[in-house]
């Protein structure tokens, strides 16, 4: 049997009343790929992402995430993915350690597994002296790196990252991407949204949504060539301005 794709979407559609938020999007994401999911505000990215992670029922179309059907196997999908956004990722009032215990527990990891994994994360991030500190007192850079580590704590097949680097400093932003690369090498698939166009270049492939539809899909190099642009910023402006 061939290895299943990480994500497979076929004509996926979501309507709210007579407004079509996501309009027949079709794409695949390979295992271990870093896939950028770009689009202007209101283009339908969040709605599409909510369908893929099993939080929203599609109006029509098909999709499989981590090999599971998004209509019937939403619980299985949730066990096999990680999620991190700039707005929500960790509990501020809990300590670093407590957050890892909580998320490990939610995903059904055994206490011994949690402890082992938590020690690994703490060592990797070099935050031993901060492990009993409440998350709200951590510098933002640490918080974002910790949030990413917690999102992949249960070794999911796919991690969904919704604007993970908004507002972080340019050095941490780059360290964050190095962490994504490292995990991709280990086989974790990353599905990322960002408003930083230089970060779009760090993706293996990406799609750009405009008014609910995928208007471009390919490697950064292909998209630049296709739209005759010198960087992704230009690609994005050309596509998104076309419509409005």
């Amino acid at each position: 049997m061939p290895e299943p794709l990480a994500i497979e979407a076929q004509e996926l559609t979501k309507k709210f009343g007579d407004f079509t938020a996501v309009d027949r999007i079709t794409f695949t994401v390979k295992k271990g790929e870093i896939f950028g999911f770009l689009g202007a505000n209101g283009a339908g990215k969040t709605t599409a992402m909510r369908m893929l992670i099993g939080l929203l029922h599609p109006t029509s179309g098909q999709a499989r995430v981590a090999g599971y059907d998004i209509y019937h196997d939403t619980e299985k999908i949730k066990h096999n993915i990680g999620y991190m956004s700039q707005r929500f990722s960790l509990y501020n009032d809990l300590t670093v350690w407590e957050n890892m215990e909580l998320f490990g527990g939610i995903y059904g990891m055994r206490d011994s597994e949690i402890k082992q994994k938590a020690d690994e994360v703490i060592e990797k991030l070099g935050i031993g002296r901060l492990k009993n500190r409440q998350v709200k007192h951590l510098p933002l850079g640490f918080k974002q790196k910790l949030a990413f580590s917690v999102a992949i704590f249960h070794e999911p097949q796919i991690v969904f990252l919704d604007e993970p680097t908004g507002g972080v400093d340019p050095i941490v932003r780059r360290q964050f991407w190095e962490m994504i690369y490292e995990e991709a090498e280990r086989g974790i698939t990353a599905f990322v949204t960002t408003h930083y166009m230089d970060e779009a270049e760090y993706c293996n492939r990406l799609s750009i949504m405009v008014d609910g539809q995928i208007k471009a899909l390919g490697t950064p190099g292909e998209l630049k060539q296709e739209l005759n642009s010198k960087n992704m910023d230009e690609v994005f402006l050309k596509l998104a301005r076309q419509q409005s």
């Binding site: 505000n41 910023d233 994005f236 402006l237 301005r241």
Partner: peptide, 13 residues
């Protein structure tokens, strides 16, 4: 104060 945070590249422009 940060009027363009979380805003896409086109709207920022």
């Amino acid at each position: 104060d940060e009027p363009t945070t979380g805003v896409d590249a086109v709207s920022r422009k």
